[in-house]
């Protein structure tokens, strides 16, 4: 009940934001607006819901109007950052690498969640016959979005290291587009197995949105650096500092801020730097996703 009510609320939010987004084309040059977006690694409506309190908090901290620009496509976020249509973005590890390259190295990662420093991906299946990565040969497999770090790049990299080439060894490879969609794909039998990030998996399990008797985890990747908040390089350094501080001083003891952190699934935000993502860049090159 409450879930669907939330969904509706989220839809409403999405609508408002879509309108705001189209407005934001015109509001392009206005200095007092901070445009924020996020890679759509979950349902766009879910992202809206997660962002709402954080947006309010950032408004209070920066004194600027904060507008969320929803997208349905990972690459669109990177492109928007590169063409200065947004100022601040929640990026995955790999999307950050892409953004870094497309902005000629000017994009700056400011903070990440403590969890993002040792992130993992979960391989899931509903097929009792699949017990290890090797059983995946000849099966259909669902990644998240093609440019997702935890839903595509890193699992692909670790699959390759385990001697499995997704292009050759899987019967069919599909891209669900989002982590929770991957779970839906596997649960519905659209794909024999799939992979998604550990954080979303745990959230779905906690919320009982997935039938764990049916869908189970059969492998987990080694840890790697993932998500961060990135600003475009030519943003006013004072504003960058304000934003960084705002994230870092989020306090789980403050009930309002605790809600934000819970929605962001963060126990704590920590500073991050470009160098953290060099290993992802190498993995991307090794997996052939970066040319």
């Amino acid at each position: 009940m409450s879930l669907s009510a939330l969904r509706r609320l989220a839809l409403k939010g999405a609508l408002a934001c879509a309108l705001a987004a189209s407005l934001s084309f015109t509001a392009h040059a206005q200095e007092n607006v901070l445009r924020v977006s996020a890679i759509p690694d979950e349902a766009p409506t879910e992202l809206q819901r997660k962002f709402a309190p954080l947006g309010k908090y950032l408004e209070a901290q920066t004194g600027m109007k904060v507008v969320f620009v929803p997208v349905t496509d990972y690459a669109a976020v990177v492109e928007a950052l590169a063409t200065k249509k947004i100022d601040l973005a929640w990026l995955g590890g790999f999307t950050f690498v892409q953004a870094k390259i497309r902005t000629n190295g000017t994009a700056i990662p400011i903070v990440q969640r403590e969890e993002d420093a040792k992130f993992t991906s979960k391989f899931i299946t509903a097929d009792p016959a699949i017990k290890s990565l090797n059983d995946l040969k000849g099966k259909t497999f669902a990644f998240g979005a093609p440019s997702s770090t935890s839903g595509s790049l890193m699992p692909r990299y670790f699959l390759l290291q385990a001697g499995i080439n997704p292009e050759k060894d899987f019967k069919n490879v599909a891209f669900s587009g989002a982590h929770d969609a991957t779970v839906a794909f596997v649960a519905a039998g659209k794909a024999d197995a799939g992979v998604l990030n550990a954080s979303v998996w745990e959230k779905l399990v906690e919320a009982k949105k997935v039938d764990t008797d049916k869908v189970r985890v059969f492998a987990t990747t080694p840890p790697y650096f993932d998500y961060n908040w990135t600003v475009r390089g030519d943003l006013d350094p004072a504003l960058v500092k304000k934003l960084t501080d705002a994230f870092l001083k989020l306090d789980p003891k403050n009930p309002e801020q605790a809600e934000i952190m819970q929605l962001q699934r963060a126990s704590k935000f920590i500073p991050t730097k470009k160098e953290n993502y060099e290993s992802i860049e190498k993995a991307a090159q090794a997996a052939g996703l970066l040319k």
Binding site: A75, Q98, A145, P146, N172, S176, K190, L290, K291
Partner: peptide, 21 residues
């Protein structure tokens, strides 16, 4: 939407900014 063929290739490559491909 996962039906294979040129569309899947295009979606994949555009997502990865492989514009030449």
């Amino acid at each position: 939407v996962g039906a294979g063929g040129l569309g899947q290739l295009l979606y994949f490559e555009l997502s990865l900014f492989h514009y030449a491909q």
